[in-house]
Amino acid sequence: TETRTFTDEREARRFEQEARDNGKDVQVRESNGKFEVRVK
Rank of each mutant, 00 (worst) to 15 (best):
T1W: 15
T1V: 13
E2T: 11
T3F: 08
T3N: 08
T3C: 15
T3D: 08
T3A: 06
R4F: 14
R4Q: 09
R4H: 15
R4W: 11
T5M: 12
F6K: 05
F6L: 04
F6W: 01
F6P: 04
T7P: 09
T7N: 12
T7M: 09
T7K: 06
D8I: 00
D8N: 05
D8E: 07
D8A: 00
E9I: 08
R10T: 14
R10A: 15
R10S: 14
R10E: 15
R10I: 14
E11K: 05
E11M: 06
A12T: 02
A12G: 02
A12N: 01
A12F: 03
A12S: 03
R13S: 07
R13K: 10
R13T: 06
F15E: 03
F15W: 10
F15Y: 12
E16Q: 05
E16G: 06
E16K: 00
E16L: 06
E16P: 01
Q17G: 04
Q17W: 05
Q17A: 08
E18T: 08
A19P: 01
A19W: 06
A19V: 06
A19D: 01
R20G: 03
R20F: 05
D21A: 14
D21M: 13
D21L: 14
D21F: 09
D21Q: 13
D21P: 00
D21W: 08
N22H: 12
N22K: 13
G23K: 05
G23E: 03
G23L: 04
G23W: 04
G23V: 02
K24V: 07
D25Q: 12
D25V: 11
D25Y: 09
V26T: 07
V26Y: 02
V26A: 07
V26N: 01
V26H: 00
V26P: 06
Q27P: 01
V28P: 01
V28S: 04
V28E: 01
R29L: 14
R29S: 12
R29G: 05
R29T: 14
E30A: 10
E30M: 12
E30L: 10
S31M: 14
S31D: 11
S31G: 07
S31K: 13
S31F: 13
S31V: 15
N32H: 06
N32P: 01
N32W: 00
N32E: 10
G33K: 03
G33F: 00
K34N: 10
K34C: 13
K34Q: 13
F35L: 05
F35D: 02
E36S: 01
E36H: 07
E36R: 02
E36V: 10
V37S: 01
V37G: 01
V37W: 00
V37I: 07
R38L: 14
K40V: 13
K40L: 14
K40E: 11
